[in-house]
Simulated scan of single mutants.
Amino acid sequence: MQESAGNEIERMVVTRIYDAPRELVWKAWTDPKYVMQWWGPKGFTAPVCKMDFRVGGRLLCCMRAPDGQEFWNASEYHEIVVHEKIVSSMYFSDAEGNKIDPAELGIEHEAIDGAYDVTLFEDLGNGQTRLTFIGNEPLESAKNSGQMEGWIQILDKLAEVLAGLVQAQ
C-alpha cells in the first residue's frame, strides 16, 4: 500500500470540468434515469439503477459488460449537501444489494479502512462545474486494478449525458 507524508494513504481522485451548470451535473448524478446512461466504463451498459437518495438511503446499479456479464454495485448515503457534496460507501453486491467480496467476481479492489467515497460539485461560474470523485481505494491499487481508468471513462460518459441535457435546455 502506498503511503505519503504523515502516513496517510494517497486516495484515488478523479476530477472533471463540465460545460454544464452545477444543478444539472447534480441532477445527472442523482437521478437514476440519467445514472443509467453513464454508469460503468466504456462499452458497459446499466440496465438497472434504483436510488433512494437520502441520508441512510441506498443506490443499487447493475453494470453489464460487453460480453453480457453483470456486475452489481450498491452504495449507502452518509452525507448529502445539496448541489455540493455526497459522501457514500460503495461496494460490490448481488442483485439484492447484499455486499459481496470483489474477489468472488475476479476483481481486485483494496478499500481503505473507514474511508468513504466523496463526490464534490463546485460551481466555477460561466456555466461550468468541477466534479471531483474521491474513491475509497488507494491510488496505486486503483491504477493497478483498472478502477482509475474505469472512473475516467465513467466521467467521460457523464460528459456525453450532460451535453445532451444542456442542449435540451
Rank of each mutant, 00 (worst) to 15 (best):
S4L: 09
G6F: 12
T15Q: 15
I17W: 10
I17R: 10
A20R: 02
P21K: 08
R22H: 07
R22C: 06
L24P: 02
W26H: 05
T30A: 11
D31A: 10
P32E: 07
K33L: 10
Y34Q: 03
V35Q: 06
Q37N: 12
Q37E: 15
Q37C: 14
W38M: 05
P41F: 09
G43I: 11
T45S: 13
V48S: 08
R54G: 08
G57H: 15
G57T: 09
L60K: 07
L60G: 07
C62N: 05
R64E: 13
D67C: 07
G68N: 13
E70R: 04
F71D: 03
W72C: 04
Y77L: 05
Y77H: 06
Y77G: 02
H78I: 03
V82L: 10
I86F: 05
I86C: 05
V87R: 07
S88N: 10
S88V: 01
S89I: 06
S89R: 11
M90I: 15
M90N: 15
F92R: 00
S93K: 04
D94L: 07
G97W: 08
I100C: 11
D101F: 08
A103H: 10
L105A: 09
G106D: 10
I107Q: 03
I107V: 12
E110R: 15
E110D: 15
D113I: 13
G114C: 11
A115I: 04
A115W: 05
Y116V: 03
Y116N: 12
Y116F: 11
T119L: 09
T119G: 04
L120V: 10
F121C: 02
D123M: 06
D123F: 09
L124G: 06
G125T: 05
G125F: 07
N126F: 13
G127N: 09
Q128D: 04
R130C: 03
L131Y: 00
L131E: 01
T132Q: 06
I134H: 01
N136S: 12
E137Y: 01
L139W: 04
E140H: 12
E140A: 14
E140P: 00
E140S: 13
S141P: 01
S141V: 02
G146K: 01
G146W: 00
W151G: 00
W151E: 01
Q153F: 04
I154Q: 01
D156P: 00
L158C: 13
A159K: 04
A159D: 12
E160H: 12
V161N: 01
V161G: 00
G164A: 10
G164T: 10
L165G: 01
V166S: 07
A168N: 14
